[in-house]
Amino acid sequence: MKIGFFVGCNTAFNRPDLEQAVRYALPALGVELDNLDGQSCCPSWGTLPSVDVAGWCAVGARNLALAEEKGLDIVTVCGSCYGSLAEAKYKLDHDPELKTRVNELLRNIGREYKGTSQVRLAHYYLDHELGPDRIREALKYKLDGFTIALQPGCHSLWPSKVYFDKEEDTFHPRVLKEMCEALGATVGYYTRLLDCCGMGAMRSADMEKSFHLVEKKLVSMKEEVNPDLLVTGCSSCLLQFDTAQKFLQKDKKIKFEIPVLHYMQLLALCLGADPEQVAGLAETNVRSFIDRVRKE
């Protein structure tokens, strides 16, 4: 099994430990990674997608063409990349006129978008291709007795029509939950599960408002689940939850801290990866969580 790994800006530059986690976990489960050499930004929403549809789709199509040329699907751990690439693909596959225009732009660089590769989000890909049982069998460390709260991430769910892997019920998602349960953890439900974390454009536009959202979510999960760990399905959510808590503590908005990991980091840890390499850049105290897991 082989797949093209689309790293994405935030993962590559802000949280390379997440990149390392992917590079550890997928091969450990028998999935070979292709680097998709020469990949670029997806492009992110605030850039070309905010300028025009064709430019957005052309940059997305170039990234997709890199995978198509190798006959591979694309996997990413970032919800924004997942959304931007999948939406561009959906537009290209449903609008022949746009596809022609985009391929004219790609002809200048000797590439073509055909539409043969799918865009996948890591935990959906694992659920779909391997299933929870194969993961359960490969674990070195299990999370029995630990409680997890989830942050699936908006882009992992909506707009469902553009995605290849999708939840049956996008308002009551189950995949990330089942993938965490496969690690032995108990997953708690909290009523603001689907709320937005506030990362992304909103955080760039107004940090205070963005933190208002993340605070509401943190309080809801603390009160309703009181988890040992928060697990995200998206690298942007990871950044928000991992970095916002110290600000909220400083402002006395919250009096607790919930350690945060992306699912792929947690998976890599359970498969036996070096915590420094796959989770070493976390600002929240994931170290003590990891120590507890490895002690048990």
Partner: peptide
């Protein structure tokens, strides 16, 4: 392994953007 590691790849991207 992205445009930051490959001049050719970056030029490809820039060509697209210059025509957008």
């Amino acid at each position: 392994p992205s445009t930051v590691a490959s001049k050719k790849a970056l030029q490809e991207l820039q060509t697209i953007i210059r025509n957008s």
